[in-house]
Amino acid sequence: MEKYSKWRDPATGIQPFLPPVPPRTVSPIFIALLTPFSVFHSIARTILLAIVALVHIILVEGLCLIFIPLPPLYRAISSGITAFTCRTALCLMGYWWITTEMFSPKRGKTGVAQLSKIAPRKGDLIITNWTSYVDALYLAFRHNPTFLLPVFSSSSAHATPTTGRHTGTGSAAISTTLAQPPLLGYLPVSLPALIARTGSLADTYATPPKGMYKTLREARRKEGRPVVLFPEGTTSNGRAVLKFGEGTLAEGDVGGDDEGIVWIKFFKHSPPTPFAPSATCALPTPFKHLIFSTLYTPQPAPSRSLYVRTLHPSAAPSSPSFLPSEILINAPGGLDAAGKDHKAVWREACATVLAETGRVRRVKGMGWVEKKAFLEYWQRSGRR
């Protein structure tokens, strides 16, 4: 909509924060006739989903903790229960089948087929986009990882001018970006807490919070399972990759393969239809979205689609053949996109390959800081 044009990325024209709107091709009278049936089976699925969530919290966040002194046993039991509860929850939401694909720009090379059978394990890092609570449920079901979110300093910073070269527009015009708080580190978040904060902004603190990892390397060494990072810090509507927070994904965190494999995954949801609203949740209302968009459907057994695309490890940032300069040289803005900060080269390269894996574009002018202003305007103006 035009009143939200301020949050349209100038380089791509994409609005990454607006919820996708389904086409109005069905008669309102027909929808009204289906309403009683929709209410009935949606309430039934909501109750079943609440029971599954309660079982997960009691068993995984409660009883399983007695096995923590025995790490292998704890991981095995918690992983099994998590896989069952998360897959059941996805089925209740309509995800009967989830399509996955291993993408490789080096198809046909020797060893590619064998490497594709490797799954993320302890010491590995999974870098992914974030669009919905569905993404978290899938990752928990398949890998039972430790979820990490970047946290930033609450101290204010001055806005910095950038040119079109940095934004990828090719223009030399000067534009002013919002203040980018410096990174403090990475905070582990449990699955229930991550689902509850879907759509929320990245956290800021005056001092480093308890339990925070200062670097990803530290987190990968200390955690007994794979580590998942959402470098965008917040959710989008899935149309593009948001700008990564300043300081994330430094060279020491992702460069080299001595710490394990760095996996790149991209989640893509089907576009909304009159009977199935989009599963993407860009606004900080996950439970409202779950009940009124995901569970409230005319069909008693709805079918939704989720497409998970994974970059092959041979082309990932942990591969010895991965050179950030080669990645960026063909990207909009070239090496200038990283600016004068040499640590930003790896961050920009990771963002580029994430967008290429998902076959979407990047919105370099839109990140969690810009989303904060968007949410403030959204709340003031009311929904649409």
Rank of each mutant, 00 (worst) to 15 (best):
R225E: 02
L242R: 09
G256S: 04
N237I: 12
G238K: 07
K268D: 07
T310S: 14
D257S: 15
P298K: 10
F287L: 15
P274Q: 07
V254E: 09
R309E: 12
S305K: 11
L290C: 10
G245D: 07
T310M: 13
K222W: 03
A276E: 04
G245N: 09
E246L: 15
P271T: 09
P298T: 10
L290P: 00
V241S: 03
V262H: 07
T235M: 01
R220F: 06
P274D: 03
W263F: 13
E251P: 03
G224I: 11
P300G: 09
T248Y: 10
P226V: 08
S278L: 01
N237E: 12
E223H: 01
F275G: 01
W263E: 03
P286W: 08
L306C: 03
R239C: 06
G233L: 05
A276L: 11
F244L: 12
P231C: 05
T285A: 08
N237P: 06
T248W: 04
P226K: 08
E218Q: 13
P302F: 11
S278R: 00
Y296D: 00
G247T: 10
D253A: 13
F266R: 00
S278N: 10
Y307E: 15
A219I: 09
A282Y: 02
T310I: 15
V227N: 01
L306I: 11
S236Y: 03
F230W: 02
R309F: 05
R221S: 09
P271L: 12
L290V: 09
P286Q: 08
A219G: 11
T310N: 00
D253E: 13
A240D: 07
I291D: 00
A276H: 05
K265A: 07
A279D: 14
S270N: 06
E223L: 04
P286M: 07
T235F: 04
S303K: 14
E259P: 00
T294N: 05
L229T: 04
G238V: 08
L283C: 07
F267W: 01
T310C: 09
D253W: 13
E218Y: 02
R221L: 14
S236D: 04
G252M: 14
G224P: 01
L229F: 02
G256V: 12
L229I: 13
S303I: 12
L249Y: 01
E232V: 00
F266V: 04
A301Q: 05
H269P: 00
K243F: 06
Q299E: 13
H289F: 04
L290Q: 04
L290R: 01
P271H: 06
H269R: 00
A219K: 08
G224Y: 06
E251R: 15
L242D: 07
S305A: 15
C281K: 02
T234G: 01
R221G: 15
T248I: 15
L249E: 08
T235L: 05
P298I: 09
S293G: 03
F287Y: 13
Y307N: 14
N237T: 10
F267Q: 01
A250C: 10
T248V: 15
S270T: 10
S270W: 03
G224D: 14
